[in-house]
């Protein structure tokens, strides 16, 4: 930024005298922000520390150092929680801004070390016995509590992930894909569908009852991906049956809901998701019909389909983008 530009703009009558003076004044005392550098250092530090602790436990699990390691992790966890608890603002249903990024990352470290602690207890002493569900359920509850009480989006993401773990599936789109590919399908797909719709419902309720409205995006993000992927794989699983078209219809209904929701929130991201997933679904359907014929003509048709549909897809995207902008 140079003041020369603003002087020119001032001469052209675009900005007022006082604005120009303000900008000049600001330039003279320009501050250099180390915000993102410091934040990255913190993030890296938390990552390395928690990874290192994890490996440390993994390697020393058979030696005498149990109690010492356990005590160290507990100390990190309690220390961080204590620090955050002292500085935290009271709970509110609205967004509570965190005091600073140090708070955010120490809270993250506290939660991570808590998870390691629980995992260690279960592994070494079997405190939960054979109730494996309980061993994931308790950390999940804890994470949700922390996410809401301390108002932390990152921990909310972790809590949602843990909810998936508790149900036996992963909610991260990429991992979910390989998960479904490996497993036998049916139960996975139904669980995924249930979880995805549940998350979308939570997103809806979050907004309806004004409880932490800014959590809406995170819930909807995970919910949308999981639901779409579950629906698509439901279709692929049943693609030999006649009723598989039901999956596609369900998917289009869901698309319609997300579409309206996205328009209401002016969110281009969700519009993009809608178009991508429904494009995949429709293409799958088209290929399904094309494959039934098997001469060279079908191959040409397939090529034509992809060229034309991709052009149409771009047109739709451009149209939606304009629509969101004009809202």
């Amino acid at each position: 930024m140079n003041t020369g530009l603003y002087e020119k703009l001032f001469e052209e009558g675009c900005i007022r005298q006082e604005t120009l003076d303000n900008i000049r004044e600001k330039k003279r005392n320009q501050l250099f922000s180390l915000h993102w550098e410091l934040k990255s250092l913190l993030y890296l530090g938390v990552m390395l520390l928690s990874t290192g602790l994890g490996i440390l436990i993994y390697k020393n699990i058979d030696t005498i150092g149990h109690q010492i390691i356990l005590a160290f992790i507990a100390a990190v966890c309690i220390g961080c929680f204590f620090y955050c608890y002292r500085r935290k603002k009271p709970f509110s249903k609205e967004k509570v801004n965190s005091p600073d990024s140090l708070f955010d990352y120490l809270l993250l470290l506290a939660c991570l070390s808590f998870l390691i602690f629980i995992g260690y207890l279960q592994f070494q002493y079997g405190v939960f016995g054979n109730n494996y569900g309980l061993a994931t359920f308790i950390p999940m509850l804890m994470l949700f509590y922390v996410a809401y009480d301390f108002d932390h989006l990152g921990i909310l993401s972790m809590a949602i992930t843990n909810l998936g773990v508790w149900l036996g599936i992963s909610v991260n789109p990429m991992t979910l894909l390989s998960n479904i590919a490996e497993s036998d399908g049916r139960t996975f797909i139904l669980t995924g569908l249930f979880l995805g719709l549940f998350l979308v419902l939570v997103a809806f309720l979050t907004e309806r009852f004004h409880i932490k409205k800014h959590f809406h995006f995170t819930y909807l993000h995970f919910g949308t991906h999981v639901t779409f992927i579950a629906l698509l794989f439901g279709y692929f699983e049943d693609s030999k049956n006649e009723f598989s078209i039901l999956w596609i219809i369900l998917l289009l209904v869901f698309t319609w809901y997300i579409y309206n929701n996205a328009i209401r929130h002016k969110s281009f991201y969700f519009l993009l998701l809608c178009t991508i997933y429904s494009y995949i679904a429709i293409s799958a359907l088209v290929i399904h019909f094309l494959v039934k014929g098997n001469d060279m003509g079908v191959v040409y048709l397939g090529f034509f389909y992809f060229i034309i549909s991709a052009i149409a897809f771009i047109k739709v995207l451009v149209h939606l983008n304009k629509k969101v902008k004009s809202l």
Binding site: G54, I116, M158, L167
Partner: peptide
């Protein structure tokens, strides 16, 4: 944060202490 710190493979039966996170995967 959600992706890097809590993406754990689910459904395998090894214990998951390595990634710096308690993944669980308890159901199976």
């Amino acid at each position: 944060v959600g992706e890097t710190l809590s993406s754990q493979p689910v459904g395998t039966d090894s214990h998951r202490m390595g990634g710096g996170n308690f993944g669980g995967g308890g159901s199976s």
